[in-house]
């Protein structure tokens, strides 16, 4: 009897442990299912918005919809309209609809330079008129890496070409700038000669009109002093200019080489971007394709499949409508 009693106690303890294990497993299963459902937004109430784009480029089903960098929904459907515009339908979490006035603008842009594409909604000004179900937003396409690279190239290359032309013109002995500097030198020499002539004339005048009095003589003395100062300045300028021209002559080849190098670098950057961008775009498309497959798979799986309306297939029902005369 004692032996049976001990075995009975052991068996009861074993049953208790088995039940505990099964209960824990069941709880984990239920919690996991609930978490998956919550994660996929099964219980999230959404509102449907849409916008029209000129191209479906970089837009794909399931793409995140964000406001100020915060995810509030996703792209539900993309369809082509008879006028070749692309209709993009998005589902936005009902709780965040109040952040989106009706005059908001939807943008397609990248997260970072080469990140995933997202739909970013820039909230409008009219905070009193908030979007409601089935509203249509305005759409503008944001700049991608390729656009930025092209814009940068388009803007920088003409500037560099202009700089190159200017420096080449400076270096050209027949160029406008070199000719202008040369003319300044010639003018300086001419002014010096004129100054000497004027001094001689003044000296002669001084002799001839010495009788005119001390006042005139003083004025002429002053003028003489001023002219001497002018002459001194011109002499200084004359001494400095050749040195400056020599320096410019010496520096110009180096500057031209540097500009050539810069232009070459710009060309290489453009070329590298052009080579890498298609690859990046291909990768992005592949990722989008994978995501689409995953979402399509998820749609077929229980319990999501039970929440979706089955799409109609086969022949449409015959419609006997004839417009009345």
């Amino acid at each position: 009897m004692k032996l049976f009693s001990e075995q009975d106690i052991e068996a009861r303890a074993l049953r208790l442990r088995v039940r505990l294990f099964l209960l824990t497993a069941a709880l984990i299963g239920v919690v996991t299912l609930a978490a998956v459902a919550v994660r996929h937004g099964v219980f999230t109430q959404t509102i449907a918005l849409s916008f029209f784009a000129e191209s479906a480029h970089e837009i794909s089903k399931g793409m995140a919809v964000k406001v100020v960098g915060f995810k509030i929904g996703k792209v539900e459907e993309i369809s082509i309209e008879p006028d070749n515009r692309i209709k993009v339908e998005i589902a936005v979490n009902h709780n965040y609809a109040r952040l989106i006035p009706r005059d908001s603008v939807a943008h397609v842009m990248k997260e970072g330079l080469i990140g995933a594409s997202i739909v970013e909604i820039l909230p409008g000004e009219d905070k009193k008129r908030i979007v409601v179900d089935n509203d249509v937003l305005r759409f503008e396409r944001g700049s991608g890496l390729a656009d930025l690279a092209k814009k940068l190239t388009d803007q920088v290359i003409p500037i560099l070409h202009d700089v190159k032309k200017i420096t080449a013109s400076i270096n050209d002995p027949q160029g406008d700038i070199r000719q202008a500097v040369h003319h300044i030198g010639e003018a300086t020499v001419a002014m010096r000669a004129s100054s000497e002539e004027l001094q001689k004339l003044l000296h002669q005048s001084n002799v001839k009109v010495g009788a005119l009095g001390g006042q005139v003589s003083a004025i002429l003395d002053k003028t003489d002093q001023n002219m001497a100062l002018v002459q001194k300045s011109l002499t200084t300028l004359n001494g400095t200019l050749p040195g400056m021209l020599q320096k410019i002559d010496g520096a110009l080849p180096g500057m031209l080489q540097k500009i050539d190098g810069t232009l070459e670098n710009a060309r290489r950057i453009s070329q590298d971007s052009a080579e890498q961008l298609p690859g990046l775009l291909r990768d992005g498309k592949a990722v989008a394709g994978d995501t689409r497959d995953i979402v399509a798979g998820a749609k077929k799986a229980w319990p999501i499949s039970s929440l979706l309306d089955p799409a109609p297939t086969g022949a449409m029902p015959l419609d006997s409508y004839v417009p009345s005369r």
Binding site: V18, R19, A26, V30, L33, A301, P303
Partner: peptide
């Protein structure tokens, strides 16, 4: 005896998750 109930629940869950 909860054992059969729990077992049935688990089998149901597994059946629901699989296809």
């Amino acid at each position: 005896n909860f054992f059969p109930l729990l077992a049935a629940l688990l089998v149901g869950l597994m059946g629901a998750c699989g296809h």
